[in-house]
């Protein structure tokens, strides 16, 4: 399975990105890591060029909301039916209500949303989700 990953927007927190790359490889995924500082259009274009199965975006500095609002529009411009959209990291700024964040990002078009959730737990859930989709 192919996964495109990276950190969205002007976010430069790179540590999680490296860990995600390594963890995905270990789990047997083929990884296309666009690194930090990646715009939503670039993620979508990378999914198209690689015919990826999963887009895994991470966001650490609190910019996610601003960058991901347009996901629906971009999703409508191409056939992404077989792609799983996933986001995680620190999705809000400061003392946001975590309960409200998940539905919000689902509303933007993400299938799996993980706010301040451990990476391995998130990846376990991804694998379960992909298994169930088969």
């Amino acid at each position: 399975m192919k996964v495109v990953t990276g950190v969205v927007g002007n976010d430069i927190h790179v540590v999680a990105n490296r860990l995600i790359d390594i963890s995905l490889e270990e789990r047997g995924f083929e990884v296309f890591n666009l690194g930090v500082n990646t715009y939503l259009e670039e993620f979508m274009d990378a999914v198209i060029e690689t015919d990826a199965d999963v887009l895994l975006i991470s966001s650490l500095n609190g910019e996610a909301e601003g960058w991901c609002r347009d996901l629906k529009i971009l999703k409508s411009q191409y056939d992404f039916r077989d792609v799983t959209f996933m986001i995680g990291g620190n999705l809000g700024v400061g003392e946001m209500d975590p309960e409200a964040l998940v539905p919000k990002f689902q509303g933007y078009g993400f299938d799996l949303v993980f706010h301040q959730i451990d990476l391995n737990e998130g990846l376990d859930q991804l694998e379960a989700y992909l298994e169930a989709r088969k």
């Binding site: 259009e41 670039e42 979508m44 274009d45 990378a46 198209i48 060029e49």
Partner: peptide, 14 residues
Amino acid sequence: GLSTLIIGLTNSFS
């Protein structure tokens, strides 16, 4: 010089 027309799959890569 020569002229070209480019057809590509995405803006960010092709």
